[in-house]
């Protein structure tokens, strides 16, 4: 007996969505709900949770101190994302257009540095940016230095950009590669100049990749707490430091959970916006 089309569709839905969401429910939703359930309980005197309901943790969120930190880190994360896009888009575009063999090499070359170790790479940046390091020696030779590079916001942005650039390039590559070269040829044949072809054909069609890449870079930039410490010299803290400090230093898991929940709420809104824009771009394309 042949299954009905409706039955087939249902089977396909379960086969594709079932395993993934079952996994996510057990290993993401339940653990997350566990942590988020702390938001309504009290911190124990020496850490841990006391299961007495309270609304205090949420009230503390209104503190302007945290808002300052959030705004400051949103700014740094946004600059990082913008720079990643400016560097990453042309790079992904070029990789997608490379002949096959070189394409694979260029793509792997993007992630290869990341097969070493995050801390080691970050320390290498300290060496590069140090007052006695090569960048400053170069600037001095040109009569431009020395400049204070390390322990500045600039150093934090450089470190974040370095850490997350591949998260921009890979989704962009995946989105750009699928674009049919014939589309652009058609556009060119119709007399459009390359710039116009780019703005009206390539860019809109690769928009889902752009959005994915931006979320991938922006979000972990906001949450990173090691780079502000090492490259920023601990002179600036970001949202990640705030959450880390509540969980690890103050051992205030309830308030740490509230901060995490606030960040997640904002990011989920961003994701909805992304999904919406993605679908819109999809319909237009």
């Amino acid at each position: 007996m042949t299954p009905s089309p409706a039955g087939r569709r249902a089977a396909a839905r379960v086969a594709t969505l079932g395993p993934g969401f079952a996994f996510l429910t057990v290993f993401l939703l339940v653990p997350l709900a566990l942590v988020l359930s702390y938001t309504v309980f009290r911190r124990g005197r020496f850490g841990g949770i006391v299961y007495e309901p309270t609304g205090e943790n949420f009230a503390r969120l209104a503190d302007p101190l945290y808002l300052d930190v959030v705004l400051g880190s949103v700014r740094l994360a946004a600059v990082t994302t913008l720079l990643a896009l400016l560097l990453g888009y042309p790079t992904a575009y070029m990789i997608a257009r490379l002949p096959g063999r070189w394409k694979a090499i260029a793509l792997v070359a993007v992630v290869l540095p990341f097969w070493t170790n995050f801390l080691i790479r970050t320390y290498a940046w300290i060496v590069l940016l140090n007052s006695q390091g090569p960048v400053n020696s170069g600037l001095e030779a040109l009569g431009l230095g020395p400049v204070e590079l390390l322990y500045t916001d600039g150093a934090i942005v450089a470190g974040l950009l370095y850490a997350y650039l591949p998260l921009m390039i890979l989704p962009l590559y995946s989105a750009i590669e699928r674009l049919d070269p014939q589309l652009r040829e058609a556009s060119a044949n119709l007399g459009a100049r390359p710039a116009r072809t780019f703005w009206s054909v390539t860019l809109p069609l690769s928009l889902p990749g752009v959005l994915t890449g931006c979320v991938f870079v922006f979000v972990p930039s906001l949450g990173n707490f090691v780079i502000p410490e090492l490259l920023g010299g601990g002179r600036r803290i970001m949202v990640g430091n705030l959450i880390r400090d509540q969980f690890l230093k103050a051992r205030d898991w309830p308030f740490g959970s509230v901060l995490a929940l606030a960040v997640i709420a904002v990011l989920v809104l961003l994701l909805f916006a992304q999904a919406w824009a993605g679908r819109r771009a999809g319909r237009n394309g």
Partner: peptide
């Protein structure tokens, strides 16, 4: 479901770790 599938990528790693 769409947002849920991306949630782990946007979760602060410490929250997922402790959870």
């Amino acid at each position: 479901l769409d947002a849920l599938s991306t949630l782990p990528a946007i979760l602060p790693d410490l929250v997922l770790a402790i959870g």
